[in-house]
Structures are given as C-alpha cells and as structure tokens.
Amino acid sequence: MDVIIQLGVFLLLLALGYFFGRRAEQKHYRSIREREDRLRSLVVISERFPPPELLRHGTQLVSGNVVVSVDYFKTVVAALRNLVGGNISSYESLLDRARREAVLRMQEEAESLGADAVINIKFETSRVSGNAGQALGSVEVLAYGTAMIRP
C-alpha cells in the first residue's frame, strides 16, 4: 500500500513538474524573445577594447544575474540521463534561458545608464546551495561587462 502511495505521489509530482515547468519555460522564452528584440540595438560583444566609434564614451560596470530552479520533471529526466550518459537536454534549456535572461538584465541596466553597447562580457555560472542533494536544485547565472555610456 505504501508503495502505491509513493508511486502515486511520484507520478503526480512528475505530471505537475512537467505541466507547470513546461508552461513556465514557454512563457519565459516568449518574454526573452520579446525583450531581445527590444534591446537588439544595445550591442553586446566580448571584445576587450572599445571600437573606434566608442572611444569617447564613458564606462561603467554593469551586470545581470538570475537564479533559476529546475522542475521535478527535469530532475527526473536528468537523473535517468545520468545513468545512461549523454547530453542532459533538460538542463541545457534551463541554462540557456538563464543565460539569456542574465544578459537581458545586464542590457536593461546598461540601457538605464544610457549606454550604446556593452563590451567585454563575461559569464559566471554557479550552483546555489540549499539543495543538499546531489541533483541540481537551482543555479545562478551572472553576466557582467562594461557599458559604454554616451557622453
């Protein structure tokens, strides 16, 4: 009997995780694409030296960070994938979203400063403690760079 309850709870969590997780992901992706379109003119590059046209601009460090959490369905798929080996695509989309979101937040900060571009962008990814287990609980992505502010 215990076994059936356990299995039921497991399947329920799985279904909930899938349903809400997927909905949240799709919603997030929609919002990311929208904002990326809006901020497309605020250029982000990884070069260390400002291009000639920005040589008179002011500089200021900007950053954007985001902590995203994994849903139960993704955890289960990742755990299964861990047994077999290979690409954990359920985490890949999570991190892809997180990274784009972090860049967007950085761009938003730069925009509020009146910047034309962000150069020398760097990323930092780290697992946020609080998930005591071995599996991924939540992950932080930080994007930072130098905003080139219009004089």
Partner: peptide
C-alpha cells in the same frame, strides 16, 4: 560596431524536442 545584436536561430543550445519524448 555592429548595428545590433544578431538574430540567432533557436534550438542550437537548447533542443526544441519535446522533453516527454526523451523521458
């Protein structure tokens, strides 16, 4: 400097396959 950030197609870093299939 480029005129704007590039429009990069989706599905390179995150596969668009339905996760249920993989599951």
């Amino acid at each position: 400097l480029p005129g704007g950030n590039p429009r990069i197609p989706e599905g390179i870093n995150a596969s668009e396959e339905n996760p249920l299939l993989e599951f």
